[in-house]
């Protein structure tokens, strides 16, 4: 997992290794994190604008995950 910008601050870490039962989709990872409560539940609550990237490409919640994938959670971007 990679947590970026505001999410890294909120979670108190830049990333971690997460084990989820196979077969897993991006939505399963979000659910696993949400179940921790606290900042994870608040930041990843349904309706919050958090996007998922898998291996450096934007992905949908139903994207299938594989062992070793880099899954990143991105708050709305504010560059430019």
């Amino acid at each position: 997992m990679v947590y970026l910008a505001r999410l890294r601050d909120a979670f108190g870490r830049a990333g971690e290794t997460l084990a989820v039962p196979a077969p897993a989709r991006a939505a399963d990872v979000l659910a696993t994190l949400r179940a921790r409560g606290g900042a994870f539940a608040a930041e990843l609550a349904p309706g919050r604008a958090v996007r998922v990237a898998v291996n450096h490409a934007m992905a949908r919640d139903d994207a299938e995950l594989h062992d070793g994938d880099e899954v990143a959670l991105l708050p709305p971007v504010t560059g430019g």
């Binding site: 970026l4 910008a5 505001r6 601050d9 604008a49 990237a53 934007m58 991105l74 708050p75 709305p76 971007v77 504010t78 560059g79 430019g80």
Partner: peptide
């Protein structure tokens, strides 16, 4: 290019203000 960059490129701004640091809202 600018319109798409603003909404699709993974950059984030954190600004320092008199009230402290804050992440810029989209």
């Amino acid at each position: 290019l600018m319109d798409y960059l603003k909404t699709r490129a993974p950059f984030w701004k954190k600004e320092q203000t008199p009230a402290g640091a804050r992440w810029v809202e989209a």
